[in-house]
Amino acid sequence: MDELMSASKEFFRQPLQMKREFSNLNDGEQFRAEGYGNDKVRSKDQILDWSDWIYLKVEPEDERNLALWPKHPSSFRDALHEFVVRCRRVKRDVLRAMARIAGLDDDDQHFVDQLGGRATVHARFNYYPPCPRPDLVMGIKPHSDGTVITVLLVARGADGLQVLRYGVWYSVPSSSTHALLINVGESTEVMSNGMFRSPVHRVVNSAEKERISLAMRSG
């Protein structure tokens, strides 16, 4: 986690021209999901999130578009690959525990099996630079994940993540070390008939501090 967060910071702190080598715009115009950039602009009146991101398909491994994987820093690709491999075990263990909580003791692979043998996993690195007027923008607008499960890697001391519960926004406490947070996705909420709820969440900005996170979305 240390190596991956360090490599992420180094990537986002590069000059814009270097980051655009991995742009999510084909020929500077046509938007695609993968690559470096930010929101797709659909209207001149659209309010954009105050963040940059790089979005990569990481599984299945044979479907990776390595042309969009940053080459600098040199540690980025290996660190991401290692993290993806280790996340497989984290997701499996969490989903098996959820199945047991749901009373599926004879089939604790139930939610794991829903991912299938070639589950699609995307990695989204989010960079939130300091904002001079954080009261006017959102790092990421309120949303819930339309996945089975999301493993969120948050850099140490990174404030800003908030979760909506009964109409009130609660701040998720930051950690003095890197932290893994688990988000249940909408697909799991449906499969569990609402036993596990997919939380609505957002990120608010800071006027002084940058924030980096990595969301590994499965399913």
Score class of each variant (00 low, 15 high):
2 D>M: 14
2 D>P: 07
3 E>T: 13
5 M>W: 05
5 M>V: 13
6 S>E: 14
7 A>N: 00
8 S>C: 13
10 E>N: 06
10 E>V: 14
12 F>A: 06
13 R>W: 13
16 L>E: 15
18 M>P: 04
21 E>G: 10
22 F>P: 03
25 L>T: 00
28 G>P: 08
28 G>E: 08
28 G>F: 10
29 E>S: 15
32 R>H: 11
36 Y>A: 03
38 N>Y: 11
43 S>R: 15
46 Q>I: 08
50 W>H: 05
54 I>K: 00
54 I>V: 09
55 Y>S: 09
56 L>E: 10
56 L>A: 04
57 K>R: 13
58 V>R: 06
60 P>K: 05
62 D>I: 09
62 D>T: 11
62 D>H: 12
66 L>G: 04
67 A>C: 12
67 A>V: 10
68 L>W: 02
68 L>A: 04
69 W>E: 05
71 K>H: 08
73 P>H: 02
76 F>A: 04
76 F>H: 02
81 H>D: 15
81 H>W: 06
83 F>K: 13
84 V>D: 09
84 V>S: 13
85 V>N: 07
88 R>K: 14
89 R>P: 02
91 K>G: 15
93 D>T: 15
95 L>A: 10
95 L>M: 11
95 L>G: 07
96 R>F: 06
97 A>N: 12
102 A>Y: 12
104 L>R: 13
106 D>A: 15
106 D>T: 07
107 D>V: 12
108 D>I: 04
112 V>G: 12
113 D>C: 10
114 Q>D: 05
114 Q>M: 14
114 Q>C: 15
116 G>E: 10
118 R>I: 09
119 A>W: 05
121 V>Q: 07
125 F>M: 11
125 F>V: 11
130 P>C: 06
131 C>S: 04
131 C>D: 02
132 P>I: 00
136 L>D: 00
138 M>Y: 01
140 I>L: 01
143 H>I: 03
147 T>D: 09
148 V>G: 03
151 V>E: 00
152 L>D: 02
153 L>K: 08
156 R>C: 11
158 A>I: 01
165 R>Q: 04
165 R>N: 07
166 Y>N: 10
167 G>E: 02
167 G>P: 03
169 W>Y: 06
169 W>S: 08
171 S>D: 14
171 S>C: 11
174 S>Q: 13
178 H>M: 06
183 N>P: 06
185 G>M: 09
187 S>Q: 10
187 S>H: 12
190 V>P: 09
191 M>L: 14
204 V>M: 01
206 S>C: 05
209 K>G: 01
209 K>N: 08
215 A>E: 05
218 S>A: 14
219 G>V: 01
